[in-house]
Design a protein around this nucleic acid. Structure first.
Lengths: 210, 210
DNA sequence: TAGATTGTTAATCGATTAACAATC
DNA sequence: TAGATTGTTAATCGATTAACAATC
């Protein structure tokens, strides 16, 4: 499962950043494994496949590891992104810190609501959707964050593809039907809730089985 | 990997709902598999473990399947939830449709900002954090959605645990340190971006290898 | 040096797929 | 009946863990 490996790498990165900020220079596979909840064997296997080198007795150099993991996920090369849909969720993302080391930089934001178009959100002037095509072309936008209502999601996605977007980060609870060449990453918030529901049921079972 | 199975079940549910809304009464393992991108064998194995029964030649009854999957994730028993942090993200969730079949019902929302406390968001009057403890106790709140700034997340999480909360749906990019009996489901939005970054790099590699 | 930790291979484990008799 | 699809077992595949010689 390739996806599981990516999630592990993201997890490593998060803890490596914490360790570096705590002033640490090196980390062993054992310590990193403990922090992310894996076996040291698993960690060493992952690092093996990335060809990073460590030293017996001292472990891995954190800065080496970070650079390697960053480049594995291609987070160092910034891809131009736009955001469509400046409702509450769109605003939350525009003002959030997620853009910092994510591999993307937010270049423009769009909406259709006349009350919102023209306003400024975290230094971005909200543009009308009719400008979308031109901006995507002139600024070589590679990806879009889609935070419009579910009912509009498919139409807007089609517009994005027509404009030349290659990848969509989709927050609408809709299965977008798009050419297979387009990369879609669905961020299904309700899945988190369902997973929580299941976890709570499990705990209850364990507790009540005494 | 237990988590992968839960995600499959969530995925089945989504497509079963679509099929039912399209007027369909039954579905074969083959069709469901095609829709969610799995093998029919995998689907039958999952259904086998849930003890659902189908009929050769016609497949599975959609309504049976839905009820079974709903109860497997415990989505039919509504757990009382609160939301803490009525910023953009909190508002997005308060106004969203995710609460409908998620196993939770939103009972109260909280903030500390005097400008927000007292206002009404989708029928919920925003309460001050000092009311938290009392509300959790008197309304038997089981879970909380945490949408406060990262810097406040650990403190608020501690308050939630003190008040008696058993589970937290955490949107702050912070590793909460809590008793092991507390269930934490982290919703790491930046992971979606990183995954997208990696997927775009992969596609590029495939494309450029011609 | 002694011993902790890497790098890597082999063993194990679990998840997925194939296969097919049962059956509607 | 004929044949499509289930239910389930066995085979395969891949991911995880164990183990340990190499080495700093």
């Amino acid at each position: 499962m390739q996806r599981a490996r990516i999630f592990r790498i993201e997890s490593y990165l998060q803890h490596l950043t914490e360790l570096r900020e705590a002033g640490r220079g090196t980390v062993t596979s054992e310590e990193l494994a403990n922090r992310v909840g894996l076996s040291s064997s698993r960690v060493r296997q992952d690092l093996l496949s990335l060809k990073v080198e460590g030293k017996p007795r001292t472990g891995y150099k954190i800065s080496d590891l970070e650079i390697l993991l960053y480049s594995e996920l291609d987070l160092l090369r910034e891809k131009a992104m736009i955001l469509v849909g400046c409702g509450n969720l769109g605003r939350a993302l525009i003002f959030s810190g997620i853009w910092e080391h994510s591999g993307f930089s937010l270049k423009a934001v769009f909406d259709t609501n006349a009350q919102v178009v023209g306003s400024i959100l975290n230094d971005h002037t909200v543009r009308h959707m009719r400008e979308l095509h031109g901006v995507v072309r002139s600024e070589s936008i590679a990806a879009a964050c889609l935070t419009v209502p579910a009912a509009a999601a498919q139409d807007v996605a089609n517009m994005l593809v027509n404009a030349g977007i290659r990848a969509i980060w989709n927050f609408a609870p809709v299965d977008l039907k798009l050419p297979t060449t387009i990369i879609v990453e669905n961020q299904r918030l309700e899945q988190g809730l369902m997973t929580l529901s299941y976890a709570m049921k499990e705990i209850q079972h364990v507790a009540s089985s005494h």
